[in-house]
């Protein structure tokens, strides 16, 4: 029972953080592409801003691995 709940918890940790990161990146990415259309030099800045929320999934992954360990 405890084990299966842990597995579900780990899944939630990854899944929810991935959703959150995806949602955040969607907004940032759309804005970044818009800015790039105006000024192409903004590519790097846009890229950096877009990948910032990725850390959320990484946190989720670390938590999931800790739960399963």
């Amino acid at each position: 029972m405890v084990e299966s709940m842990a597995a579900i918890g780990a899944g939630l940790a990854i899944g929810l953080t991935a959703l959150a990161a995806g949602y955040a990146e969607k907004e940032i990415g759309a804005a970044a592409v818009g800015a790039m259309a105006e000024k192409e030099e903004l590519f790097t800045k846009g890229l950096i801003l877009t990948v910032i929320p990725e850390t959320l999934v990484i946190f989720g992954l670390v938590v999931a691995l800790q739960i399963l360990a």
């Binding site: 990725e54 850390t55 990484i58 946190f59 992954l61 670390v62």
Partner: peptide
């Protein structure tokens, strides 16, 4: 702390 954890993407 967030920065240090961020590097765990290397492992992930």
């Amino acid at each position: 702390l967030a920065n240090v954890l961020s590097y765990s993407r290397l492992a992930a």
